[in-house]
């Protein structure tokens, strides 16, 4: 009994944390979502969400999050695949992770410097004869910077999955007549799919609600659900509508978690 009791005691800090910073905010958000601007209970916010403006916004959020996730995956998988096979893979991995320790805002400002009219990117374009281009405040720069920020989070789980892969399985596939591509398709990818799923979750969900980058890098040309929530809380003061969008974001997140849920098969 003693051990059971003491085990519960260790749980207390975590339980308090969850209650204060996870459960309470969610309850508050749900609560606010049922009140309109004048403080009356109504379902108006939910009706509002299903109008063209917000649906379009949701769609565009999904589209950008999808693009960011897909491009991150396309870059991260080959990188991780290559990293597992290099000699000092831990060192390389560290170098890839280090930028993720730098504050997001700092990185955003750095990119403003790089992509700005007189930044390094335009200097380069000038030098190779293409000439100065508007890079900042475009879809391109938004997606580029987002991918840059999320890529370590995509590489890590895929790298882990790949390094757990038993190399003799690759020999076995090869031995049974599989070409390199077939081996990848039939063995490597299915066995690292859990890493891919985790990576996609870690990237897609935050990408849905990016708001700082949309302002700093995309110059508010890209309006995502995250931007809308920020605007409602800080600018229009319509906490009810902001909360409603947040409720939908939370639901979407749970749906994605459920859809990409890990179902590990024994090794």
């Amino acid at each position: 009994m003693q051990s059971k009791l003491s085990r519960r005691i260790y749980l207390i800090p975590y339980a308090i944390w969850i209650a204060l910073f996870v459960v309470t905010p969610i309850i508050l958000v749900v609560y606010y979502s049922f009140y309109d601007l004048d403080g009356n209970f109504s379902l108006e916010n939910y009706r509002q969400f299903f109008t063209a403006v917000y649906l379009k916004m949701t769609l565009s959020s999904f589209w950008y999050a999808f693009l960011i996730t897909a491009i991150s995956l396309l870059v991260a998988y080959p990188t991780a695949y290559f990293l597992v096979r290099t000699k000092h893979s831990q060192l390389w991995l560290l170098l890839i992770i280090v930028p993720s320790w730098v504050n997001l805002l700092l990185k955003a400002y750095a990119f403003i410097g790089i992509f700005g009219k007189y930044g390094a990117a335009n200097h380069f374009l000038e030098a190779i004869g293409i000439g100065t281009k508007q890079i900042l405040f475009t879809d391109f720069s938004f997606i580029f910077v987002s991918v840059y920020i999320f890529i370590p989070f995509m590489i890590l789980p895929i790298f882990n999955a790949l390094s757990e892969l038993n190399p003799s399985l690759l020999d076995a596939a090869n031995d049974l007549g599989a070409s390199r591509w077939t081996t990848f398709r039939r063995v490597i990818f299915p066995l690292t799919i859990d890493g891919v799923k985790t990576g996609c979750q870690i990237v897609f969900i935050p990408a849905l609600s990016l708001f700082m980058l949309t302002r700093l890098i995309a110059g508010n040309r890209v309006i995502t659900l995250g931007t809308a929530i920020e605007q409602h809380f800080l600018v229009t003061q319509d906490w009810g509508m902001g909360s409603t969008i947040a409720v939908f974001l939370i639901i979407i997140m749970f749906l994605i978690m459920a859809l990409t849920g890990n179902r590990k098969r024994g090794v």
Partner: peptide, 12 residues
């Protein structure tokens, strides 16, 4: 064809 020491069966 080879029979491997650790069998190398595909776990998936």
């Amino acid at each position: 064809n080879t029979v491997f020491q650790d069998y190398a069966l595909f776990p998936h």
